[in-house]
Structure formats: C-alpha cells, structure tokens
C-alpha cells in the first residue's frame, strides 16, 4: 500500500515566475524579461529551477505539516513552465521506515505541455502525522 499525496494545482503567473526568480536571487533575464526570453528561443519567460525546487518542498510540507524535516530533494528537469501554464503536483510515499520515520516521497510536476519536473524528496515525518504511510517492506528484509 502506498500513501498518495493530495494533488496541488498552481496557476503559473508572471508574478510567480519573475517574483520567484528574484526572491531566489536569480537575475537571469530569461526569468523576468520577455524580450530576452523570446530572443533565447522560448515563448515567454520561464520558471527558474530554484522556484521549482521551492514549490516541490512546499508540496511536501503542505501535506506533511510543519514538523516535516526535509533531508534531500532530487529533481529531474523537463519542460519549461511559462506564465499561463498550470503546474500540477502529484506525489506518493514510496518508502517509509517506521523506526526512523524517514520517508521517500516521489513527486511529479506536470503542465499541459508535458512533465516539468519529477523527483524524490527524502524527509523525516512527524510522529503524529495524520496520514501516516504504511511502512515499506523490503524484499531483503522479507528474505531474512
């Protein structure tokens, strides 16, 4: 049994793209200057990676709550995201160790045009998490 995270849809605005780039201290023109983005061959400004990473983190703590501790985030990058797109997050707990409460949560972020990002978040979940995942049973452990 796996625990599925509730989906999250985020309307992508120019404010999110440009504001996210600047709040992450990324001044590359392609994230806030439409003319520069067009000159670079894309159809509009596009989200920077640090904003994507921030949204992935938000998605996991929106679900797990303020006591979740993130240990790592690994992201594989795909389609760029532009203002007007909708970014839809989905996720599930694919590994969970009851003793350490460490979970691996796989996350995808999709747009209409294709997958923007996919990845894995490793986090320690709180003891009192309401939607506690079922512990992962590893084949190795079964065969002991």
């Amino acid at each position: 049994m796996t625990t599925t995270l509730p989906p999250l849809s985020i309307p992508v605005t120019a404010t999110l793209v440009a504001g996210g780039a600047l709040a992450t201290h990324d001044y590359s023109l392609v994230h806030h200057d439409r003319q520069a983005a067009l000159a670079a061959g894309t159809r509009d400004i596009f989200m920077n990676i640090l904003t994507t990473t921030g949204l992935v983190g938000r998605y996991v703590t929106d679900w797990g709550g303020p006591r979740v501790r993130l240990s790592s985030v690994s992201i594989r990058l795909g389609h760029p995201v532009h203002p007007g797109d909708t970014l839809t997050f989905a996720g599930e707990v694919t590994e969970y160790d009851e003793a350490t409460r460490q979970a691996t949560i796989t996350v995808t972020a999709d747009t209409d045009g294709g997958q923007h990002a996919s990845g894995a978040v490793v986090a320690v979940l709180p003891e009192d998490i309401q939607d506690a995942p079922a512990p992962t049973t590893h084949d190795k452990e079964e065969s002991r």
Binding site: G19, G20, A23, L55, G57, R58, T61, D62, R67
Partner: peptide, 26 residues
Amino acid sequence: AIGALTDVLGDANPIYTDDVAARAAG
C-alpha cells in the same frame, strides 16, 4: 528575505514566519 520567498511560493508553513510555530516544530 525568507518571507519574500515563501510569499511568492505561496508556502504558508508557519515555521518560516512564526517563532512560536517554529519552536513547536522543534
């Protein structure tokens, strides 16, 4: 700077903005 970032991300996790909530989370 933390608040400016979490505002734009729409991240309402209180450990970024509220000392009491952050302490309650350890």
